[in-house]
Simulated assay, not measured.
Amino acid sequence: MPPTDATAHAANAAIDTGADTSPGTAESSAAEGSDSEDTLDLRLPDELIALFAAEADTGEARSDAPRAAPTLLTAPALTAPAFVTASALFATADDDLLDRVADWGPTVTPSGVFQLVPVQVERDLPLINRWMNDPAVAEFWELAGPRDMTERHLRAQLSGDGRSVPCLGVLEGTPMSYWEIYRADLDPLARHVPLRPHDTGIHLLIGEVADRGRKLGSTLLRAVADLALNKRPACARVIAEPDLRNTPSVAAFLSAGFRFSAEVDLPAKRAALMIRDRSLRNLL
C-alpha cells in the first residue's frame, strides 16, 4: 500500500508508507502447477514458410498480383516493421493503466482551478522532499530524510509499468499537494481487500501548512475522485485507505463523498477503507 494520510492534523488525506506500493511490487500471479505440456505450440506450415522464403529471394512481389487482406499471417508479419504493426493491433486503452493521467486536465473547484501534473523528478524533487520532512507528513508517510530517499520513492513509480502515477496538485497555478493515483486492483492492497477491476486508488498529502485546516482536503479529494470517474469509464470505484488513527483524514474523505467500508489490517497500519462509488456519486 502506498503512504498513509499525511495531513494528520488537518482534514486532508494521504496514504500509507511507500514500502509496499512501488509499481513493481504487485504480483501478477500465474496458475500454479501448470507444466510446459499445456503450452499451445503454434507453427506455420512448411509450405507457407517456403513460399515466404521464395518471395524474399525474388524481391518484391509483382505489382499486378492480387493482394491478400491484411491479417496477422500475411508475409509482412515476418518482418520487423510488420511485427510492430501486428502488436499494435492488440493495443487497447489498458496499455495505459490509468488512462493518461497527464491528459485529465484541469477541473474547477470551489477553491479554484485544480490540476494534477505528473511529477518530473529533476523539477519537483526539492519541493516534495521538503514536504516529506514536515513532521505532520512524516508521521504517516514515513519518508522523512535526505532527497535520495524521496527520489527512490518517486523513481520506483516513474520507472514502473504505469500502475502508479505520482503527481503534484496545482491549485490556481501553485503546487500545493502531492498525489499518487494508482490502480488499486494491481496494488499489494489487493492482497488484503476485495477489489474490482479498474478500482482506482488515491494517496494525498497537503504540502503547505497554510493550506491545512481549511477543508481543502475534502474539496480536492472530491474533485480528484470525480476526475478519475469521469476520465476512466471502466472505473466504478475510487479507493483510499487512510490510517484509522488519522481522524481528520477519515473525516475529510467522508466529507468528499466517500463512504466508510471497513477496518482493514494492513502490514504497516490499521486502515479505514474508504470508497467513492460511481453509482452513489450524485448522492454523497
Rank of each mutant, 00 (worst) to 15 (best):
A240V: 06
P110W: 09
D94I: 08
P106F: 06
R152P: 00
L254V: 13
E139Q: 12
A26C: 14
P23Y: 04
L229D: 01
K215F: 02
R147L: 09
S218K: 01
E139R: 14
M176E: 11
R237L: 06
N246H: 13
M149P: 00
E139L: 15
P194T: 09
K215D: 15
A61L: 13
V119C: 02
P70S: 00
L195V: 09
P166E: 01
R147G: 11
V119R: 00
L125Q: 06
A251P: 03
S261D: 15
V209A: 14
R270D: 07
L216E: 05
A10S: 12
E241I: 02
L98E: 13
V224M: 12
I206R: 06
V121C: 02
T74G: 06
A86V: 15
L284E: 12
I181R: 04
P118E: 05
L73G: 11
A190F: 06
G145S: 01
A272C: 04
T85C: 08
W131Q: 01
P110S: 01
D64A: 02
A252E: 04
S28K: 09
L266S: 07
V121F: 00
A252S: 14
R276A: 10
A210Q: 15
G162N: 15
T79I: 10
E27W: 11
P76W: 00
G18E: 01
N282S: 15
F140Q: 13
S36I: 14
T109P: 09
Y182L: 09
D187Q: 04
T21L: 04
G105H: 08
W141G: 05
M149S: 10
F83T: 10
N129G: 04
D16Q: 09
P267E: 06
G24K: 11
G160F: 06
A31F: 11
P2K: 14
G213N: 02
R123G: 04
M132S: 10
L220M: 13
I49E: 08
A50E: 14
E60G: 08
F83M: 09
P118N: 04
L51W: 12
G18Y: 03
R152M: 09
S261Q: 15
L51H: 08
A77I: 01
A14P: 11
A271M: 13
I206D: 03
D265P: 00
L127G: 04
G105D: 12
P175F: 03
L227Q: 09
L204H: 07
P45W: 03
A102D: 15
V224A: 01
P197G: 01
L154K: 02
A26T: 00
R155Q: 11
I275E: 05
S279Y: 03
D94F: 12
N12W: 10
P3R: 00
L195K: 08
L229V: 01
R222A: 14
V137N: 06
D124A: 07
G33I: 05
A10V: 03
A6P: 12
D277G: 13
R123Y: 06
H9K: 00
E208F: 03
A13Y: 10
A271W: 11
A91G: 12
N133W: 00
V238S: 10
A10L: 05
T7E: 09
P110R: 10
R237P: 06
A228F: 02
V165A: 00
